[in-house]
């Protein structure tokens, strides 16, 4: 089997995917254990920040050659939403604006469109970053100006 729960290739599983889309530690939890399976989830298009999901997924074992940079690997492939609900709490969470890309330098994942600051996730989905404190705005502007150059 694969991952810490010894999943079989092709096995159907249920996962909890929470509202903190793209946050540090954003990993699906395998049911009924409520623990990370240590296998990445792929193909969950349509996931929206702020919503908790119970989904179905299928374990897919990678049988190709191993790449120097880690390359593709075993994964859980999204196979449908069982339920979704809007998150109503106000818990804060952390987002990394720097991403390491192998091979290459670390990248700051931030751009400005008009007056909006945009961050994008590894899936390609984008999220706007807003602020109330003007000091945060000036820091984002500094990052963006440095990034642009």
């Amino acid at each position: 089997g694969y991952g810490r729960f010894n999943l079989k290739d092709g096995q159907e599983v249920e996962l909890l995917v929470d509202h903190k889309y793209g946050a540090i530690g954003d990993v699906p939890l395998l049911l009924p254990y409520n623990e990370a399976s240590e296998l990445p989830l792929s193909s969950f298009t349509g996931r929206k920040p702020g919503y908790n999901y119970k989904i179905k997924a299928r374990m897919s074992a990678y049988k190709g050659p191993i790449m120097m940079d880690g390359g593709p690997g075993h994964s859980l492939i999204f196979n449908g939403i069982i339920s979704e609900e809007r998150y109503l709490g106000d818990e804060s969470f952390r987002l990394s604006l720097v991403r390491s890309v192998v091979p290459g330098p670390n990248l700051v994942i931030l751009r400005k469109e008009g007056e909006k600051f945009i961050h994008w996730l590894e899936t390609g989905d984008e999220i706007e970053l807003t602020y109330k404190d003007p000091l945060i705005g000036s820091k984002l502007e500094e990052i963006w100006q440095f990034n642009k150059e």
Binding site: H19, A23, I24, K48, P49, G50, Y51, R86, Y87, D90, E91, S92, F93, R94, L95, S96, L97, V98, P105, N106, L107, V108, H119, I127, E128, L129, T130, Y131, K132, D133, I136, K139, L140, I143, F146, N147
Partner: peptide, 30 residues
């Protein structure tokens, strides 16, 4: 990049729910 890490502490932006994160704090490590 100039920064080794930039971490934003965020919540959901209630005025733009599902589309935006509201930043409460930014931490830099050069």
């Amino acid at each position: 990049s100039k920064w080794r890490s930039i971490t934003a502490t965020v919540t959901h932006d209630q005025e733009n729910f599902g589309r935006a994160y509201l930043i409460a704090d930014l931490n830099f490590m050069e």
